[in-house]
Every structure is written in C-alpha cells, then in structure tokens.
Amino acid sequence: MKKRAFDKGIFAFPYMILSAIFIIFPLVLVLVYAFRGVDGKFTFDNFAQVFTNPTNYMLILKTIGIALITTAICLLIAYPVAFVLASSHFNKHTILALLFIIPMWMNFVLRMYALQSLLNMINVKDSFWAAIIGMVYDYLPFMLLPIYTSLVNMDKSYVEASRDLGGGDVQTFFRITFPLSVPGIISGILMVFMPTFSSYAITDILGGTEASVIGGKINTLFGERLTWGLGSALSFILLVIVIVVMVAGNLITRASNKAKSDAADNSIVGGRIR
C-alpha cells in the first residue's frame, strides 16, 4: 500500500525550486537594487530620479503613448481583416488566415530590416511614424488572431435571429457581432499592448532618435554599474504598470463575460442558452 501514497504533486517540485531561483528571486533582486544607492545603502533616490527628472518620466509617458497608438492602429486594421476572414465567403479558406501569421515565424529583427529597406526605398526616413509602422507590422498578427478566433467561433444563430427579426447589416453588426467579439478584442489589446511596452528594438531600428522607449533606456542603464539603481527602479515601475494593466484587463473580461451571460439568460435564441 505504500506505493498508493506516492504524491504525484512531487513532480512539480523541481520546477518550483527553479522558479524560486530564476523567476521570484530575480524580481527580489530588482526590488533590492531599486532601493539601493551607489554606496550600497537604502535610498529612495532612484525613484526620486524617475519622478523628478523629466527625461525619465516623459520617456515612460512616451512609451505608453507609442504602445497606445500601436494598439489602436492594430485594432483598426485587424478588425476589418478578421471580419472578412471570418465571413461565410472566406472562412472555408483557412490558408488565408494562415497567410497572416506566417511572417510571425520569421525572426523579427530580420523582418524589421526588410521593412526598413522598403521604407527607405520609397523615401520614408527613419522617424517616429516609421517606428509606429514597424510596431504595427510586427504586432498585427497578435491582434488579428484572437479577434478572428472569437468571430469564427461565434454562434451564428444570433446573427440569423437578428436578421429574422428585421435587423439590417449595420444594425446586426453593432448590436450582435461586435458585442460578441469584445472578449477577442480585449485579449488582442492585451497581447499587443503588453509586449509593445517592453520591446525597444523596433523603435530603435526604425525610429532613429525620435522614438526611444523605456526598454532601450533600461538596457543602456545596465551597461554601466553606476546606473543600475535607476534601471532597477524603472524596471520596477514597469512591473507595476504590467500588473495594473493585467488586473484591469481581467476585470473587463470578467465584466463583459457576465454581461454576455446575463444577456443570454434574458433571451433564448434558437433554443440555445449560452
């Protein structure tokens, strides 16, 4: 009977130890360095530098701005494309959807080189907006996929019901299709917004001097021993922003799911309750 007592949870043990060393502990180190002065003593100086020196806090705001613009443009492009791909005429051809994610498999620095070559050829110089084009180019599939998935998996009987009840194309879209695709939109926004926040290679390559972001600054700060504290403080602030965005995203998803199930409870469509 001794064998029966074997706790299979023990298989998670090695990874828990690895996580403690390689995931949790490094975050503790970031925190320690963020509150440590050059002399090794406890200090708030690093954070003070972030919030009093305009170059630091403006850079954070600029990064948020670039992330927001990128996310908005991705959404504006991805939604129509996903809508077309998911429409009854096109959704038989899965190859079309695949075409949009193939570039994701190619190294993104090489893709940025390709895009830069194209932009330079048509005389678009490295600039803020060239950087935005690069960001959109790289992150578009991350917006497209979740929206496409939510549209394809949508229960089509809702749309049919709307049409049976006399709803036109536009009305059906805004009152049925769009609200049902909101979870896809939210996860798309998170999947674009979160990484745009820490990536700096794209803006560095295509933005020239106009589009430096917080990630690049942190990378540079760790090139020199004296500025590790500031770098850690900036990393810590980034971590806090990530947590805030994730929690907000979760709350919105939960709220929209609840609204959806409430709506479904109130209206039985096609004899099915979702």
């Binding site: 390689f22 502990f25 490094p26 942190i218 922003i241 990530v242």
Partner: peptide, 26 residues
C-alpha cells in the same frame, strides 16, 4: 503554482531580462 509559472509569460520581457542580468552577477 500556476500563478508562478505564468509570471514570465505576463511580465514585461525587459524586467525578466534585468532579473536574469542581476541574478548571474549575484
């Protein structure tokens, strides 16, 4: 356990990078 295993997925990559950087020096 699930929460811990998702930290690196959710976290900003630059923060993870800084963590590894400080860890190897430690």
């Amino acid at each position: 356990a699930n929460f811990v295993s998702q930290i690196t997925v959710v976290n900003a990559e630059i923060v993870t990078a800084v963590g590894f950087f400080l860890l190897v020096l430690f």
